[in-house]
Every structure is written in C-alpha cells, then in structure tokens.
Amino acid sequence: MKVFIPKQHGAWAMLVIPFILGMFAGGADVKHIPLFCGWLFLYLAAFPATMMVKKKNIVYYQKWVLVYGIPAVVFLLISVWLEPRLVFLGLPLFPLFLINLYYAKRNNDRALLNDIAAILVFSAGGLASFWMGAGKLDGEALFVFIQSALFFTGSAFYVKSMIREKKNNRFKLYSWGYHVFLPFVSLAAGAEWAVIGVVPSSLRAWFFHGRKLSIKTIGISELVNACFFMAVLIVFLLQT
C-alpha cells in the first residue's frame, strides 16, 4: 500500500519549527515525544479530512483519516493525561480547522485567509510544546506564537506573490507592505536583536519579486529562510 503523505512541503516547516521553538523556550522534556507524535499524526489526518469534503475519492481519503487519526488520538490522549490543561488549548483551534474545511469544500485551498487560519494552528504547536515543558503559558510562550505566525504569514504573502499572484500588482503591494512593517512588528512583539530573523524575509520579498524562479527554487529558499529564522530565535531564547 502506497503511503499517503501530504505534498504541501511548506506545511512541514510550519508544523515543526514552532514546536521546536516552544520546546527550547519552555524546556525540553521526554513528554514532548508523545506530544509531537500526536501533533504530527493530527496534521497527517487533517489533510485527507480536508480532501474528503471535496467529495472526491471519499473512501480513499476516509481510510487515511483513520490510519493517521487513530494514532493521533492515542498520542494526544497520552499528552493530555500528562498535561490535562492542554485541552483548553485545543478547543480554540477547532474553529480555525473549520475555516480550512470551508475553503476546501469551495475548492479554494490557496485563499490567503485559509493560509492564515492554518498558520495560526501550526503556530499554536509552539504554545502546546512550551506548555508541556514549562507547565504553564506566559509571555515567552506568546512570543514564540506571535513570531512564528508573523514569519509564516510573510512566507504565505511571498510565495503567492511569486507563483499564483505573480501578475497581480495589487497583491505585490500587499506583500511588500507587509514585509515593510514585519521587522517593526516583530520588534514590537519583543524580538529585540532577534528581529534579524525576519530581515531576510523582507529582503527576498522586495528583491526576488519579478525574477523567474522555479517553484523548486522558491521552495528550497523558503526552507533555508525558515531554518535561519529558527536558528536565530533559538539563540535568542537560550539567552533570555
């Protein structure tokens, strides 16, 4: 049986990076293992669930919802048993997932609002990871969440301006405008010198637009940019 793996490569960085940042900020613990496994399988189950609402190959996608959903439930139940208050974090994420289902049903998965809803869910992984390590949520947890959401929203603007919206001058201005303010908003959210983690995002949004870059090149450069962002924030978190 061929394994069904989502092909949205950018989502993998969104899944992993906030979680890692939350783990560094809150303190790594063996309890992160079942939490990450549950988080991973939840994403793997959520993707075929969004495909099911399109009413195409329902039986096929239903099978993969079960294949991934069952271990997701098992690992998340273990995590909730270890830290029961995580339930209160999961409840606000459900409406965001409904937004994803709505856009999937309308066959408009690439809508910016849909991307932002997914980014907020992925960024909340940092909150869960921090909570599991520190046993609480505080300003540092919120910092990880906000910085992750700001960074990946910028990535969404940039990728759209380079591919699907590359001929849309209005969207280009939206992307440029966002990236003008991104370092300042990041700084206002407590980044201090770690604001340099988002500076390459602004530079590539301005200087790469209009260049003929392949989708593969754009994807690889975004991965490198995301790794740079993560490395800078890890150093910053370890010093605070």
Rank of each mutant, 00 (worst) to 15 (best):
Gly190Pro: 12
Leu173Asn: 08
Leu173Gln: 07
Asn168Gly: 06
Ser186Lys: 04
Val185Glu: 05
Tyr174Gln: 08
Ala191Gly: 11
Arg170Met: 15
Arg164Ser: 11
Ala188Gln: 02
Glu165Val: 00
Asn169Val: 15
Ala189Gly: 07
Lys166Ile: 05
Trp176His: 05
Glu165His: 09
Lys172Val: 14
Gly177Pro: 02
Ile196Trp: 00
His179Ala: 03
Lys166Arg: 12
Leu187Tyr: 14
Pro183Ala: 01
Phe171Thr: 07
Phe184Glu: 04
Leu187Glu: 02
Asn169Leu: 15
Glu192His: 08
His179Gly: 03
Gly177His: 07
Lys172Tyr: 05
His179Lys: 08
His179Arg: 07
Val185Cys: 01
Lys172Arg: 14
Asn168Ile: 12
Lys167Trp: 01
Ser175Glu: 03
Ala194Cys: 07
Ala189Glu: 11
Pro183Val: 04
Glu165Ser: 02
Glu192Tyr: 10
Asn168Thr: 10
Asn168Arg: 03
Tyr178Glu: 00
His179Pro: 05
Trp176Asp: 02
Gly197Glu: 04
Arg170Trp: 09
Val180Asp: 03
Lys166Val: 14
Glu192Gln: 08
Gly197Val: 07
Arg170Val: 15
Ala188Cys: 13
Gly197Arg: 13
Gly177Val: 06
Gly177Met: 10
Gly177Trp: 06
Glu165Pro: 00
Lys167Leu: 07
Gly197Gln: 08
Pro183Met: 05
Phe181Pro: 00
Arg164Cys: 01
His179Leu: 01
Ser175Gly: 09
Ala194His: 08
Ser175Trp: 00
Val195Glu: 11
Lys166His: 13
Leu182Ala: 01
Val185Tyr: 02
Ser186Gln: 04
Ala188Glu: 00
His179Thr: 06
Ala188Pro: 10
Lys167Ile: 04
Lys172Met: 07
Glu192Asn: 15
Trp193Leu: 10
Glu192Thr: 14
Val180Met: 11
Phe171Asp: 03
Lys167Ala: 07
Gly197Asn: 10
Leu182Gln: 06
Phe181His: 00
Glu192Trp: 13
Asn169Phe: 13
Asn169Arg: 15
Gly177Arg: 07
Gly190Ala: 11
Val195Phe: 04
Pro183Gly: 04
Leu173Asp: 09
His179Val: 02
Ser175Val: 03
His179Ile: 02
Val195Ile: 14
Glu165Phe: 00
Ile196Pro: 05
Ala188Phe: 09
Phe184Cys: 03
Ala189Gln: 06
Ala194Leu: 12
Leu187Val: 02
Gly190Val: 06
Lys167Gly: 14
Ser175Gln: 01
Gly177Thr: 09
Gly190Asp: 07
Trp176Asn: 05
Gly197Ala: 15
Val180Ser: 09
Ala189Cys: 10
Lys167Asp: 14
Lys172Ala: 03
Ala194Val: 06
Val180His: 05
Leu173Ala: 09
Ile196Ala: 01
Ala191Ser: 14
Glu192Cys: 01
Asn169Glu: 15
Val195Ala: 09
Ala188His: 08
Lys167Gln: 03
Val180Leu: 12
Asn168Tyr: 06
Trp176Leu: 02
Ala188Tyr: 12
His179Asn: 06
Phe184Ile: 13
Ile196Tyr: 04
Ala189His: 03
Phe181Ile: 09
Val185Ile: 15
Trp176Thr: 05
Ile196Asp: 01
Ile196Gln: 04
Phe171Ala: 00
Phe181Tyr: 08
Lys167Phe: 08
Phe184Pro: 08
Val185Arg: 07
Lys172His: 13
Val195His: 15
Trp193Val: 15
